[in-house]
Simulated scan of single mutants.
Amino acid sequence: MRAKSISLLLIAALVTGCAGSQSGQPQAGDTRFVAGDGKMQVFEAAERKPAPAIEGPALDGGTVSLAAHKGKVVVLNFWASWCAPCRAEAPVLKEVAAETKAGGVEFIGVDFKDRKADALAFERTEKPGYPSIYDQPGKVALAFQGTVPPAAIPSTLIIDRQGRIAARALGAVRYTDLKNAVIKVRDE
């Protein structure tokens, strides 16, 4: 029962992190935003916890998994089309993903609590250049329970080459903060 309560609290925190209503979807004109400052917190290697095995359906078909990128640095970004800070940070993520891909860094989006048609429209507009897991029920976020959970939408996690959570940002990331953290983890 305790695990179920914690799971429900995590989902509630994620949904209310950006905006939303009791149903998990924002209402027209809803501009509430409770989030972090977007600063990247990098964890010392000895403090890092293993990332859970995550996998899910890609927005554009197929399957996306963390295991497919074993041995690489992976940036996981939790987003939703209805989240204004997510839309604001999308160009930053796209740019850093393009600039670091040749260095062995992979990006994966996790579309959370969203309508699939809205998420696909967002991807057509933003053209991120990397896949997103369609995670309407929030199972991917729940998999991080007991590690370093994404606690707001947007949230960004950096997974190191050993599969450990190396960094986290709550809120919309800034270009310099994200790129510096990605390069630091990549160059370890």
Rank of each mutant, 00 (worst) to 15 (best):
A166H: 09
Q136F: 10
G71M: 02
L157K: 01
A46C: 02
M1Q: 10
E126S: 11
E89D: 10
E55C: 07
L8V: 02
S132V: 04
H69P: 11
A51I: 02
R2V: 05
D118W: 01
L178C: 13
R164W: 05
S155N: 07
R161S: 01
S5I: 07
Q41R: 10
P131Y: 00
A151M: 11
T16G: 15
I159C: 12
Y175D: 09
T125Q: 13
E44L: 06
A172L: 08
A117P: 10
H69T: 00
T63Q: 12
L170V: 05
Q27M: 08
A58W: 07
M1Y: 13
P137A: 12
A67W: 11
D187M: 02
I153D: 14
F78K: 04
L8G: 14
G138T: 05
V92Y: 06
A88P: 09
Q162M: 09
I6K: 09
P26Q: 00
L170A: 12
R115V: 03
K127R: 09
K49P: 13
A98C: 10
L66A: 06
M40G: 12
G61R: 00
A13N: 09
A119L: 08
G146Q: 05
L9E: 10
I11P: 01
L9S: 13
F112M: 09
R168F: 05
A141S: 13
P131D: 00
Y175K: 13
T147F: 01
K116H: 14
K179D: 06
G62S: 07
A68P: 01
V182R: 06
T31L: 14
W82V: 02
D60K: 08
P154M: 05
L142R: 04
S23F: 04
T156P: 12
G103H: 11
L59C: 03
P50E: 04
A167N: 12
P57K: 02
I133W: 10
K94G: 11
C18D: 14
S81N: 09
L59H: 02
Q27N: 10
I183H: 11
A98R: 12
R87W: 00
V64D: 03
A88G: 04
A102V: 03
A181S: 15
P137T: 04
T63S: 13
L14I: 04
S21R: 11
A35D: 09
E188V: 01
K101E: 15
A121N: 13
K72W: 09
A97F: 06
C83P: 15
G62D: 06
V64M: 03
E126C: 08
S132E: 09
G104C: 10
A141F: 03
Q41T: 14
V148H: 05
N77L: 07
R164P: 07
I183M: 15
T63W: 02
A84P: 15
N180Q: 11
A119D: 13
I183T: 14
Q41H: 12
G62A: 07
G17H: 03
I11Y: 06
V42S: 07
P149I: 00
